[in-house]
Amino acid sequence: MNIKQYLDSTYLKTAAQANLSEKENTKVVENCIQEAIDNDFKLIMIRPDKVALAKKMIQEANSKVTIGTVIDFPEGNGTLEDKLGEATQAIKNGVDDLDYVVDYEAFKRGEIEAVKEQVFEGTKLGLAHNKIVKWIIEVAALDNHQIVQLTALIKNVVIANFSEKEYDKVFVKSSTGFYKTPEGVPNGATFATIKLMLENSCPLPVKAAGGVRTYEEAVEMIQLGVKRIGTSAAKAIANGEIANSNY
Rank of each mutant, 00 (worst) to 15 (best):
N2C: 00
L7D: 02
S9Y: 12
Y11F: 15
A16P: 00
S21Y: 07
I33F: 02
Q34E: 11
Q34C: 00
I37E: 00
L43P: 00
K50T: 10
K55N: 14
K56T: 15
E60G: 09
T66L: 09
I71H: 03
G78D: 12
L84T: 05
G85F: 13
A87R: 04
T88G: 04
G94W: 09
L98Y: 13
L98A: 06
D99Q: 09
A106R: 13
K108C: 10
G110I: 08
K116W: 11
G122D: 14
K124N: 13
L127M: 11
I136H: 05
H145I: 04
V148R: 04
A152C: 02
I154C: 05
K155R: 15
V157R: 09
I159P: 04
A160D: 15
F162M: 01
K169I: 05
V172I: 12
S175R: 05
S175N: 09
K180G: 01
G188W: 01
I194E: 02
L196G: 05
E199P: 01
S201F: 01
S201P: 07
L204Q: 06
A208P: 02
T214K: 04
V219I: 13
E220T: 12
I222R: 07
L224D: 00
K227V: 06
R228M: 03
I237C: 07
I237D: 13
G240C: 05
E241D: 09
S245N: 03
